[in-house]
């Protein structure tokens, strides 16, 4: 079996006294798609944010694509080039146009020529179905459109791994589908390793290879989606599923 692209070994993290991640072990294969769910405050965001070092873990090891995350800035920047992230609140740059948002990383980080970066950006804008918005500012777009721009912005960096942190939970209900469609399309193209924190169970069933349930800083249970939903083992998982599936 090929080496995992992401490896978390005995990862622990505290906020002050508060133990937010407890002995997390996780191994993600190349091209694997994982959905992470769990109650609010269970440490889902913290865990995936540790993978691109938006948060620092204090114990254990995190190895991404063969490079261990340490305080070494060069390593961190190298890993961030490989790892795209989509946030709940989009985090687009409001002072730049959509096109400029998409080309900023490729031009400054990947040192691509402007014309090439713009061509790539337009390609991805078409993939997320909003090429006509290229010259607009993020503030002029709907939430769903902004999130699709954010996905395109990450894809423009040609990452090996994509992290999604509740990408649809800040959206009005009628916009959730347009964003999920883009994510499903991305999954179906294959090849991309995806870690997605979401409570969209339809999405999990459609594309995930594995569903992980977190509670109180621990990975409580993980399984294939069919098994996970049909046969939850742990009491906490059952309780959680009964709450979100009504």
């Amino acid at each position: 079996m090929a080496a995992p692209i992401i490896e978390l070994q005995q990862v622990n993290k505290w906020y002050g006294e508060f133990h937010v991640l407890k002995n997390i072990n996780l191994s993600v294969a190349r091209g694997e798609r994982i959905v992470i769910c769990g109650p609010s405050g269970s440490g889902k965001s913290t865990m995936i944010r540790c993978i691109n070092r938006l948060e620092e873990h204090q114990r254990g090891h995190i190895i991404v694509d063969g490079t261990e995350l340490t305080n070494d800035l060069k390593n961190i920047e190298a890993i961030r080039r490989e790892v795209g992230m989509v946030f709940q609140h989009f985090n687009l740059f409001p002072h730049l146009t959509v096109l400029e948002n998409l080309t900023l990383g490729p031009i400054w980080v990947l040192k691509k020529p402007k014309a090439e970066a713009e061509a790539t950006a337009m390609k991805y804008l078409e993939r997320v179905r909003i090429p006509e918005q290229a010259k607009k500012y993020p503030g002029q777009l709907s939430g769903g459109q902004q999130q699709r721009v954010a996905i395109a912005r990450s894809l423009c960096m040609n990452p090996k791994i994509m992290l999604f942190d509740e990408p649809t939970s800040a959206l009005d209900p009628e916009m959730v589908k347009e964003v999920l469609d883009v994510m499903i399309q991305l999954a179906e193209e294959g090849g991309m390793t995806m870690l997605c924190v979401t409570h969209e169970m339809g999405f999990a069933k459609a594309v995930a290879h594995r569903v992980i349930f977190m509670d109180r800083g621990e990975i409580v249970e993980q399984n294939k989606p069919d098994e996970f939903f049909a046969n939850p083992q742990n009491e906490r998982t059952k309780l959680f599923l009964s709450q979100i599936l009504h």
Partner: peptide
């Protein structure tokens, strides 16, 4: 979020 957006691009 702006800092994190920039950081996540490397």
């Amino acid at each position: 979020g702006q800092y994190e957006g920039a950081d996540s691009l490397g």
